[in-house]
Design a protein around this nucleic acid. Structure first.
Lengths: 156, 156
DNA sequence: TTAACTCGTTGTACTATACAACTGAAAATC
DNA sequence: GATTTTCAGTTGTATAGTACAACGAGTTAA
């Protein structure tokens, strides 16, 4: 059904506008959802777990952050007892990061409350729509990886 | 095809993860896209134009920001000569905000570069997928409006 | 005419961030 | 094998963005 260039433009504008609006609200929403765990740290911690351990540099690349930023975030997480650093025996420059037990647990509980919020918000979506939306987001984000950021091994 | 609760869960998790990843990258991406216009200010300016003038309070509600934050952002925009404040004749508490000519122009040029970036990024999507993605985002965001933020007249 | 509320500003503090300069370790080059 | 280059991470410094609290001025309700 769709096909004219105008419709394409229109869709692009909507996508741009809505993604921006989402991004702008995300911080506040996240702060409400889990005030206990510093927002950014949470994200990094999640990625560390997702990867079953990774380096600070990987985090920086994945989230387009400066290494100094990551360094400080990791420092915070460590102070909170949520991550551990294990020096790589083969390369002493590298610190392999892992969630501690407390980190894993904090993540789980946060994840649970997030999941609930999303469930509620998307309650009246059909499975088909959810699946498609998820697929679109994956596609959108992975396009960004190759286009703008440091090349990155496909996320798992 | 989809239908099991497990698939639904899975989709929700993907949506959650990918939206979060997007939000975390958005700042950096926006900074690259238009370093000249302070990121947040840009967003507010865009909303002001979209609404054909609005109050600071409206902006705060729409983006879930504190009024002090908005106040300072508007101050910045004013210093840059991109917005004007017109006191409402009927209610002296209210300042109606409008983009200046320079503001409109800055917005247009920024919008153009953003549109280009999106075009490139989504170049290989079909019109149909774009339309559906746009629709999903709209639906997702509008759900958020009613669920989490101050009630808000449907955005235009 | 007070009291309560609304819109916006200012003081203060904190988080997240970048950039640049640096340290220590590994790899590459000679 | 010594020197240079590159890589991983930290620390100093500066800045944006944000919230919360206290306030000022205007409006509405008692």
């Amino acid at each position: 059904m769709p096909g004219t260039p105008e419709e394409r433009e229109e869709s692009l504008d909507v996508i741009q506008r809505e993604l921006t609006a989402f991004a702008r609200r995300a911080r506040a929403a996240a702060a409400r959802l889990h005030p206990e765990l510093p927002l950014v740290s949470y994200t990094l911690l999640a990625h560390i777990e997702d990867q079953h351990g990774c380096r600070a540099t990987d985090l920086a690349a994945h989230y387009m952050l400066d290494k100094s930023t990551v360094s400080r975030q990791i420092g915070t997480l460590e102070k909170l007892g949520l991550v551990e650093r294990h020096p790589d025996p083969d390369d002493h420059r590298i610190q392999v990061l892992h969630p501690t037990a407390a980190g894993t647990q904090a993540l789980a509980s946060t994840q649970a409350s997030r999941r609930m919020a999303y469930q509620e918000r998307l309650a009246d979506w059909t499975e088909e729509d959810l699946a498609r939306f998820a697929e679109y987001l994956l596609r959108y984000n992975s396009a960004g990886d190759t286009a703008t950021a440091t090349p990155q091994p496909p996320k798992a």
